[in-house]
Design a binder for these strands. Structure first.
Lengths: 154, 154
DNA sequence: AGTATACTCCGGTTCTCCACTGGGGTTTGC
DNA sequence: GCAAACCCCAGTGGAGAACCGGAGTATACT
């Protein structure tokens, strides 16, 4: 059995990453004020199971993307400016790729090697897209999208 | 519970796809002669569990990428020229993305919508890489790789 | 000081998919 | 007719995703 023994391209974008991004998009507008947001609020706003979101926020905290304030009136806030956090930062820490050995590895057959090379190309292409988007980008895209919605009376 | 209810980017490249590509790379040189190759031979050559490879080849056959010859002295052969089959053709049929509704779908919140848009970008970037490579490309890359191996006495 | 409000840590549960195995059946060449 | 091949279908077992729950800990407010 192999069970993802090879490079195992983590280009798969699960709802885990989507939840994390939704939460960070909620936190982004509150970065300036410095007011923390609670898990419950984020969860109910974006329709995410709160106990699950809790785990994701803990991962983001350990990765240094958010900071937490414990106790009453506590909650979470972004650790950096929303335009200094790329989607790659978020997805890579949630999906946890960077545990494996370097992608420029050697395969046991020449056929496997050329496939590995292509896999690496795909990975880089996907990572490139994620690296060029920041949280602030998405916030502004959402604002623009809402304008469109209003114009079309949706 | 969501369990991949949303678009669920199937950009994930599993060993399933790798096995299928390895098999097709074995078949590619035999396309000109028209001589079929048996599952057992491909499997032992590329170190793939044969009963598993059988399923993958069945999928490829139903997708019209390979043809099968039943009975004694039977086997598999490519249905088209190896330079007319892209890696996207292979991966998409094996990974089976095109079951879902169209990726340009509407999310229930504007935040989810912008994330869907990015997901679509990532998907397209990955698909673009796969679309520009053909089986024949890989065969030639492998040959070149083998030349390098010989030069360096590996 | 006490209490309510939050995060923190740890474990378990269910579901889904991947990777793989096996048992039959059918077609074909010799 | 018989062996060699494909064909179909039905499992198994592990890993991870997507949760739920409880006990503990820090903090603000009164």
């Amino acid at each position: 059995m192999r069970y993802r023994s090879l490079p195992a391209l983590p280009v798969d974008l699960s709802s885990k990453s989507e939840y994390a991004l939704l939460a960070l998009l909620e936190l982004s507008p509150h970065y300036a004020s410095g007011e923390p947001l609670q898990i419950r609020q984020i969860a109910s706003q974006q329709n995410i199971p709160d106990r699950y979101l809790e785990q994701l926020l803990a991962t983001l905290r350990r990765a240094g993307l958010v900071k937490s304030q414990r106790g009453a009136r506590g909650g979470y806030l972004l650790a950096r400016d929303p335009w200094k956090i790329t989607l790659y930062d978020v997805v890579s820490c949630i999906e946890g790729f960077e545990g494996q050995p370097d992608p420029t590895q050697v395969a046991d057959t020449p056929e496997a090697q050329v496939i590995q090379n292509v896999w690496g190309e795909v990975r880089q292409a996907a990572e490139g897209v994620l690296q060029k988007h920041t949280l602030q980008d998405l916030v502004e895209q959402r604002n623009a999208q809402q304008q469109v919605d209003i114009m079309y009376y949706i």
